[in-house]
Simulated scan of single mutants.
Amino acid sequence: MESICGLNPDMHRYLVEADPTKWSLAYFNGRRYAIMTTNIAKSFNNVDRKARLMPVGFLVEWLRALLQRWPISNGM
């Protein structure tokens, strides 16, 4: 925040006045995403380790079921 204040005081003021739970993970009480990363490739790599050994047909079905279980973001 000190860096932002030095670079752009108006932005610093805006962020201080805004609800920190909307823009800062440090003040957000929940989990923004079902898997704690914003990188979808890392998310898939983390959950599909065992599925990689499946035949293609089973793998596609496993991935479809996985995506249906993931919550949809309210931001869309």
Rank of each mutant, 00 (worst) to 15 (best):
D48L: 13
M76T: 09
M76G: 03
D19T: 08
Y33S: 04
P55G: 01
T38M: 14
G6L: 02
E2A: 05
P20Q: 06
V60N: 09
R32Q: 02
E17H: 06
P20A: 02
A34P: 01
W23T: 04
A41Q: 15
D10T: 07
F44S: 05
R69D: 12
I40S: 05
S24M: 02
R69A: 12
L53W: 06
T38Q: 13
P20N: 00
M54E: 10
P55D: 10
W62Y: 14
M11N: 02
G75C: 09
R49C: 00
L63V: 15
M1K: 12
A51G: 07
W62H: 13
T37I: 07
N74H: 11
S73E: 01
W70D: 04
R31Y: 06
I4D: 06
M11P: 02
L15K: 08
D19Q: 07
N45L: 15
M11Y: 00
M36T: 15
G57Q: 12
M54F: 15
S24F: 00
F44L: 11
E2S: 01
Y27L: 06
S24P: 07
A18H: 09
N46W: 14
L7C: 00
N45Y: 13
A65F: 12
W23L: 09
A26Q: 08
L67S: 12
C5N: 09
R64H: 12
G6H: 08
R32Y: 08
A26S: 10
R32S: 06
P9L: 04
S3Y: 05
I72R: 10
M11K: 07
L67E: 12
P20H: 02
K50N: 12
W62R: 09
S73L: 02
P20T: 06
E61Q: 11
N46A: 13
G6Y: 03
L25E: 08
A41R: 14
R52A: 15
K22W: 00
L15M: 03
M11D: 06
V16H: 01
L53T: 11
E61T: 00
D48G: 04
V16W: 03
A26T: 06
A51L: 01
Y14P: 03
L67D: 11
T21W: 08
G30M: 07
A41G: 15
A18G: 04
E17L: 05
Y14A: 04
Y27C: 11
S24I: 09
K50M: 11
R49I: 00
L53D: 13
R64F: 09
V56D: 12
C5E: 08
G30V: 01
S3M: 07
C5D: 00
G57F: 13
L25N: 06
K42H: 11
Q68D: 08
Y14R: 04
W23N: 06
V56R: 14
M54G: 02
M11F: 02
R52G: 10
V60H: 08
N74A: 15
E17C: 01
W70V: 13
T37R: 08
K50I: 10
M1Y: 11
Y27M: 05
V56N: 13
V56T: 12
L63N: 07
F58Y: 13
E17R: 09
N74P: 14
V47P: 00
T21D: 02
N29E: 14
I35M: 10
R69K: 13
G6Q: 09
Y33E: 03
K42Q: 13
R49Y: 01
A18F: 04
E2I: 07
L63S: 00
D10G: 03
P9D: 11
M36Q: 14
R32G: 06
N46K: 15
R52F: 08
M76A: 03
F58K: 14
Q68I: 01
